[in-house]
Amino acid sequence: MPPPLAFPRITPSEITPPAVFAARRAFIRSTGALILAGGLGSAGTVAFATPTPRERLAVSRRSPLSTSEATTPYRDVTRYNNFYEFGPDKDSPAKHAHRLRTRPWSLRIEGEVRRPQTISIEDLLAWAPLEERIYRLRCVEGWSMVIPWIGFPLAELIRRADITGNAKYVEFHSLADPEQMPHVRTPLLDWPYVEGLRLDEAMHPLTLLAVGLYGEVLPNQNGAPVRLVVPWKYGFKSAKSIVRVRFVERQPKTAWVKAAPEEYGFYSNVNPAVDHPRWSQAQERRIGEFRKRPTLPFNGYAEQVAQLYAGMDLRRNF
């Protein structure tokens, strides 16, 4: 837990990582080239080589829930991803996610609610003040990062969803458009990607609806325009590019539980004491570090979330 902000503190996210700086330079250069080429009447080819402009997000506050650990460089956060709609490799999302169109985008809120609604991403962004949350991310594969997300608590959405007493769980559906996501055509997972949380997990102040990272709009490969971030669970619980939030009475059947129920559980809380059937979860490799470090129960958030699971056998409810 960082000390109270007694004096202005420069968070790592305020310092422009070199890669970002370089990318901005490259963008300025190529934009210049684009303008020049446009003048010459041959903008087409240059336009495709131009990286997507990176929009800054206004962040109104920092959160005491942020970790003070060193953040993973922007370059690594945006080139090492699991987003199987775009392909099986870590670099597939960075290569192919440019096909994703994040505007216009709307989110459907339905199920056990008094009034189902469809809201635009613009309206969603106005629902609550954006804040920065620097969270650890632990992947079920055994690597981890520290990422400065921008977003607001999912609880804000749930508050406005006007749920009924039957709502016990929340389902999150990712976009599954084969035109934009080429690998949705291969039946490796049961598309669309569905994840879920118990209502109290979803309401927890740590659970974030993220729309940005490193002070900017979320890059496509990281789940633009809106994704979930549940820092005490393995990364795959945090659904990306969400188009549907559905409140339900029964525990959702999630994508990985359907694909391999003996390997991935509904809860999937980070737990060094419960191994994946094929590998150990006791340690993790923090991206950028050489040696492995021990994995912490609930990814280091035990103090905040352990009481959610009081009395539960976490070995059985893995």
Binding site: D76, R79, Y80, D91, W143, R285
Partner: peptide, 11 residues
Amino acid sequence: LTDGLGANPLE
């Protein structure tokens, strides 16, 4: 030697 093996070089 040139840090050219991606984000997770050991993997």
